[in-house]
Computed example of a mutant assay.
Amino acid sequence: MTGIFIRTANIDDAQMIADFHVKVWRHTYQELAPAEAYAVLDEQYRGKQWKEKLSANDSSQVVLIAEIDGRTVGIGAAGRPSESIFDGRGEIKFLYVDPDFKRRGIGRELLAQLATHLRKMHYQGAALSVVKGNESAIAFYEALNGRPAGEYIDPGPMWRSENIVFAWDDVASLIG
């Protein structure tokens, strides 16, 4: 995609990422998440969460920001798996694209760079989870040949969502 710039996030980006995360999360899950989750998972809560994530000295993790003309249009994160259901594959932990910028290749490019990071960390495969009912994300991962590899309840801080795990046994298939 022309004009997209992807960079590694740093601690100074924490609140900006949190604000973006809340905006896109609320848009994505407006029909799926309970109202209590909206009240608790706000910019302040997410800001603390992202500050912790970005200040952790964890070389297995990467957080990326996609920008167009200096505007944040996507975020992504990947690292070691957080749940056993990922079966030893590297985990794509976050992948959010601004709804106004969807279908421009931003998600694919973020995913490719996250997969490149996972390959450098010696993961042969990659996996992620999608909330049941998030049909646009499910269609996106299916179009990228992700295969359903199980289901689990996310132990998240507020909302115990039902999730489908999508997996790629060859992380390189996401890079090309």
Rank of each mutant, 00 (worst) to 15 (best):
K23A: 15
A78C: 00
Y38R: 12
Y38W: 11
A77R: 03
A18G: 04
G79D: 07
G76W: 05
I75A: 09
M16H: 15
Y45A: 07
Q49H: 11
Q15W: 00
S60I: 08
K132W: 13
S161L: 01
Q113T: 10
L64N: 02
A14Q: 01
R147V: 09
A18I: 02
E142Q: 14
R89F: 08
R147N: 10
G90A: 07
W159I: 00
I4T: 05
N57G: 10
A126S: 01
T72Y: 03
E36D: 12
Y29P: 01
A143M: 07
E109D: 08
T8A: 08
A18V: 03
A39C: 13
S55Y: 07
L32G: 01
L64A: 05
G90M: 03
K23L: 14
S82M: 15
P34F: 09
P148G: 15
M16E: 14
L95D: 00
K51L: 15
G133T: 00
A18W: 04
A33I: 05
L95M: 09
R108F: 12
R147W: 09
Y152T: 06
A167C: 05
E91M: 07
W159N: 09
Y38L: 13
R104A: 12
A167V: 07
M16A: 14
P155A: 00
G70R: 06
L118M: 10
F20Q: 05
D170G: 03
R80N: 06
D170F: 02
V131P: 08
K102W: 15
P34N: 00
A143I: 11
Q44P: 10
I68S: 09
M158A: 14
D58C: 02
Q44K: 13
L128W: 00
S84A: 12
R119P: 09
P148Y: 13
N145T: 06
G3P: 01
L174C: 02
E43A: 15
Y96E: 00
E162K: 12
I4L: 10
I17S: 11
S173H: 05
G47H: 06
T28K: 03
R71V: 00
R119F: 12
K48F: 15
E67C: 10
Q113W: 10
I85L: 06
E151S: 04
R160D: 14
A143W: 11
E36Y: 10
A149F: 08
A18M: 02
P157H: 13
Q61E: 15
G3W: 02
G79S: 06
A35M: 09
V22E: 05
S55E: 05
G88D: 01
N134G: 02
I4A: 12
K53F: 01
S173Q: 10
S161H: 05
I138H: 06
N163E: 12
V62M: 04
L174F: 05
I175N: 01
V22K: 08
V63R: 05
E109Q: 12
L144F: 04
A126Q: 01
L110F: 09
E151Q: 04
G125Y: 09
E109Y: 05
L110V: 00
G156N: 11
Q15V: 11
T116F: 12
R46D: 13
P34Q: 07
D87H: 15
S60D: 08
E83R: 13
I153R: 11
L41E: 08
W168G: 06
I68P: 10
V130P: 02
H27G: 14
I6Y: 05
G150M: 03
V22R: 08
